[in-house]
Amino acid sequence: MVRSTGDDVLALFHSLRSAYAATPKNLKIIDLYVAFAVSTALIQVVYMAMVGSFPFNSFLSGVLSCVGTAVLAVCLRIQVNKENKEFKDLPPERAYADFILCNLVLHLVIMNFLG
C-alpha cells in the first residue's frame, strides 16, 4: 500500500513534469522568477524566526518586497498566458510595462519603509 502510494506520487510528478514541459518558455521564466522571490522571502522568515523580529520594518519590507514582486509576477503570467482567453486582446508588452511600473512603485514604498 505504502509502496504503491510512493509509486503513485512518483507517477504524479512525472506526469506533472511532462505536462509542464509543454509550457511556453516565457511562462517558465516567470515561474522561475516567482520561485526565486518566494524562496528569498522564506529565507528571510526563517532568519526572523531564528534571531527575532527586531528591526521589524526592515524585515517586513524585505519579505513584502519579495511577496509583492511574486504576486506581480503571477499577475504578469496570467496576462501573458495565451491560453487565458480573458486577456487575449492585451499585448504582452503592455502587460510587461504594467509589471515594470508596479514594481517601481512597490519598491519606492519598500525603500521608504526600509528605514
Binding site: I29, L32, Y33, A35, F36, A37, S39, T40, I43, Q44, Y47
Partner: peptide, 14 residues
C-alpha cells in the same frame, strides 16, 4: 549569502 542563493538559482534556471 543564503538570500543570494535563490538569485543564483534563478540565473542558473534561466
Amino acid at each position: 549569502v543564503l538570500t543570494l542563493l535563490p538569485f543564483l538559482g534563478f540565473l542558473v534556471g534561466l
